[in-house]
Design a protein around this nucleic acid. Sequence first.
DNA 1: TTATAGATTGCCT
DNA 2: GGCAATCTATAAT
Length: 214
Amino acid sequence: MKLAHIGQASRPLPRRFYEGSPERVAREIIGKVLVSTAGARILAGRIVEAEAYHGADDPAAHAFAGKTLRNAVLFGPPGFAYVYFIYGMHFCLNVSCETDGTGGGVLFRALEPLDDFGGQTGGIAEMRRLRGLPDDAPLRLIAAGPGRLCQAFGITRANTNGLDFTDPASPLRIVDDGFQTKEIVDTPRIGISKAAERPLRFYLAGSTFVSGKR
DNA sequence: TTATAGATTGCCT
DNA sequence: GGCAATCTATAAT
């Protein structure tokens, strides 16, 4: 699809949005829209859940042990995609935060699938196909969870790690479509065993697309 | 070199 | 609720 057809809302959030603490970025990214133009259809989803991961002071974070080949993106400039492979079968998507040289990032945990973006429709059918779900599968099964979200967008470490979210030419971007978030809830992070008490998980109050049991 | 835990998901009982 | 799937990073031998 031609980017020009997507319109004003396609302008990616600027670099400065990602500078500073992952905690602030995780909270403020709720309500923004993740957009992929990598495939045949434009895929879009509203970010309804995210978690913050710091560096040296956060034992649960990949950046905690210092910079390695795997987590190098977290220590680079803010606004870049960090994708890792976990449990032998799932990918998880993060965006780097903090200034160049400091480790930290935000994990995308759940999206509300959006069928049309910039006048293009059919995104939800494509996301269901990528997830291997039947045509009548509930919407919330598409991207409620970090692994599901990546599968729905066709995201792998090979095709996404290191992408610049702020580059207008990037196939993956985060945009503000004017959506007003009413209330954002913070809770402890999910699925970790270290520093599990810190309230660094944020989600859109009332959203049925948040991960976890219901 | 071998063992184990992991920012998860889906299927089984 | 329990647990297998299946690869990687890191700890232990």
